[in-house]
Amino acid sequence: MTALAALIRRDLRVALRVGGGALIGVLFFLTVVVLMPFALGPDLALLKRLGPAILWLGALLASLLTLDRLFTADHDDGSLDLIVMSRAPLELACAAKAVAHWLAAGVPLIVATPVLGLLLNLDGQATLAVALTLLAGTPALTFTGMIGAALAVTLHRGGLLLAVLVLPLSIPVLIFGVAASNAAIAGPDGFGAPFSILCALSLAGLVIGPVAAAASLRHGLD
């Protein structure tokens, strides 16, 4: 346990210091959301209706963007070799890295949501709903994305290929995230069912993501 806690602490420190990627993700999120009214027009009623979808798309892209370097950074400086060789099971080490990434890059997105909700003319309840669904759903995005990040080590490249591989896998999260937000805002369907499924997706990702990432890393270090 101390080993995993140490790994989480280190990744958090690296992410928050100079050169770390945590805040760039929030900045990207902000930019995407600010860009939307230029494409859609400054119609506040329309923005209010599309608000949850815009916020979810922004969060999806921001988390994908920051995940790119999750394992390649450690691979480039040689840390990954030592992590694979260590006594801590690789699956748990992968999960720890994902948790650290979510704390450093996912949580700031959720914190930024209320501000962006204002820009999109969302009222308090709607903003709260979107923030809640992001809280439940962004772990699933992190765990799905980490599979792609681990593949990037094997492939020696990330970027666009990574997006092509990972984005289709995150369709369910997007569907239920937006569905739950819209249900809370407009009704008539309940918020509970899609929200529970969103939580279930995060839990399933917690199992599948680290196992798949570890399998990919074990076979991909040649």
């Binding site: 599979i147 681990a150 094997t154 492939l155 591989l165 798949a212 990919s216 076979h219």
Partner: peptide, 13 residues
Amino acid sequence: RAARAAAVLTLVG
């Protein structure tokens, strides 16, 4: 190398 990466992705899929 491609085979292993593709295998992981196929199973995840």
